[in-house]
């Protein structure tokens, strides 16, 4: 069970991802100057999720790692989203 082959991610990949992440940061700053009304928050959150996805898949190696970790992460995101949604069942209809 030990010494399973470990994937080595080339440094070049990290550089590309980093450039992508910084670009997304500036995009999200740029987007706030556009008047989107109530979609401002949604837009910012979508961009943040995209960035987190990059960090999770590449920096945290989820893309190359045991598939069970990916399932766990997906489940946790779902559970948390469900908790938020249920909490808002209270606040939105109060």
């Amino acid at each position: 069970m030990e010494n399973e082959k470990h994937h080595i991610v080339p440094i070049k990949t990290y550089v590309y991802i980093l450039i992508g992440l910084i670009a997304l940061t500036f995009i999200s700053i740029g987007v706030t100057h556009i008047e989107l009304g109530e979609f401002t928050t949604a837009g910012a959150l979508i961009l943040a999720s995209l960035k987190s996805w990059l960090v999770l898949s590449y920096f945290m190696h989820l893309k190359f790692d045991n598939v069970i970790l990916r399932i766990f992460v997906a489940l946790i995101v779902l559970v948390f989203a469900a908790v938020v949604a249920i909490t808002f069942m209270d606040y939105m209809y109060r």
Binding site: S28, I29, T40, S52, L56
Partner: peptide
């Protein structure tokens, strides 16, 4: 890092 990725827009950008 991920936590900050969310903190940043939520506190600084939602204007």
């Amino acid at each position: 890092d991920i936590v900050w990725i969310f903190l940043f827009p939520l506190f600084y950008l939602i204007t």
